[in-house]
Design a protein around this nucleic acid. Structure first.
Length: 370
DNA sequence: AACAAGGGTTTAG
DNA sequence: TCATCTAAACCCTTGTT
């Protein structure tokens, strides 16, 4: 029996929430921004409503660029992102999705896959009706619209959801999956980002259908085993990836933009301290300890990301220990690349466990590994 | 051969 | 001159058992 998989995508989520909270924003361009704090306009666009998109504004665009594009529309509103607030709303919405069936896999705050194979029993008409009901339920409970794609796999559901936005509902039957996918440019296929797309296009592969001419060996050789296999199967309309419940977080990180480019130890300490405290608080709330600590940096100039990590001898939680580890890793960066300046820096922790060592041993354990 | 660690790459929202 | 933040999966290399 064919699976019945859905993908629910909240329409322009952050900006739609802001419109709901402040109806005077309706029919103005609304741009939700991540301000880095370095200057009044430094940062990037998280998301924006359709009025803003009509001006050419897009996610991940520098804020100054979005402001250029909005020059002719002085009513354009730029708002700071409110992640924790959106997260609460997201939790309520996807609780409704869970109530409507089994197996929900959340992807970020605004999307989730769900598996209705059992309740729909292969009946896509039944699934469509359930999707209509779900959309109405979310609309009534939260005054927010979403788009849903239904298909025989996660890939098809995802691509279907993108076909009709906003407030769309698109069903792709199993018998049409392969044909449906064939016409997409490879660059629009899920799992194909800029790097993969460029390599494929250099080989003259522009559409998903063109992929069928490429051997599995070539694809895995060029893109690795996992992605290569995915591409080989996807262009034939096959995707068996299961909708799987979200696992516990494996990493937790905090990164922020420095007030100015630097590699100075003291400046880094001041910058990383609040991040370390944040991470400590997060672990304390969950009664977790971490054993791996990484320092992530973005180099000034080319904005390339670098990281160094260390495995501590015992699980720890205290911010001073995290900070010391991060500063030791920063010293390694300086030795490896003298004169390097950082634009952003942050700490990531992982390898969680429920028990740590005694607090008074913490500092000693850190020096053990050096 | 199997596994672990470290670090970079790619994608995604 | 400008260019966020978080997280997962994966890949490659190196080293150990």
């Amino acid at each position: 029996m064919a699976r019945v998989i859905g993908l629910l995508d909240m329409d322009y989520f952050f900006a739609q929430v802001e419109e709901r909270e402040n109806p005077s924003l309706k029919d103005k361009p609304v741009v939700v921004c991540v301000f880095s704090g370095r200057s009044s306009e430094s940062g990037s666009v998280a998301t924006c409503n359709y009025e803003a998109r009509a001006l050419g504004i897009r996610s991940a665009m520098p804020i100054f660029r979005a402001k250029q594009l909005a020059r002719e529309k002085p009513e354009t509103v730029f708002l700071p992102v409110r992640k924790p607030f959106y997260a609460e709303i997201s939790n309520r919405i996807f609780a409704l999705v869970e109530k409507a069936g089994a197996g929900v896999e959340r992807v970020g705050l605004d999307e989730a896959y769900f598996d209705w194979s059992r309740i729909a029993n292969g009946n896509f008409e039944l699934a469509r009706q359930k999707a209509v009901d779900l959309k109405r339920e979310i609309g009534e409970a939260e005054k927010l619209s979403c788009s849903i794609g239904l298909g025989p796999s996660k890939l098809v559901a995802k691509m279907a959801a993108g076909q009709n936005k906003p407030n769309g509902l698109t069903v792709v039957l199993p018998s049409h999956a392969e044909v449906f996918l064939a016409d997409f440019p490879v660059s629009k296929l899920q799992n194909v980002g800029p790097k993969t797309a460029q390599k494929l296009e250099e080989k003259g592969i522009r559409f998903v259908r063109d992929l069928k001419a490429i051997s599995l060996e070539y694809l895995t050789g060029s893109f690795g085993r996992a992605r290569g296999t995915f591409l080989f199967e996807a262009c034939r309309g096959r995707d068996e990836a299961p909708v799987k419940a979200n696992s516990e977080k494996k990493h937790f990180s905090r990164m922020a933009t420095l007030a100015m480019d630097t590699a100075d130890e003291k400046a880094l300490r001041d910058h990383l301290q609040p991040l370390a405290l944040d991470i400590e608080a997060w672990m304390a709330q969950r009664e977790l300890f971490c054993q791996s600590v990484s320092l992530g940096v973005v180099r000034a100039g080319d904005l390339s990301f670098r990281s160094k990590s260390v495995l501590l001898e015992k699980p720890v939680r205290d911010a001073p220990v995290l900070l010391s580890a991060a500063l030791l890793l920063a010293e390694k960066f300086r030795q490896l690349e003298p004169g390097v300046l950082f634009r952003r820096a942050g700490i990531s922790v992982g390898r969680f466990s429920a028990k740590g060592k005694k607090p008074d041993d913490a500092q000693k354990g850190l020096t053990d590994f050096v």
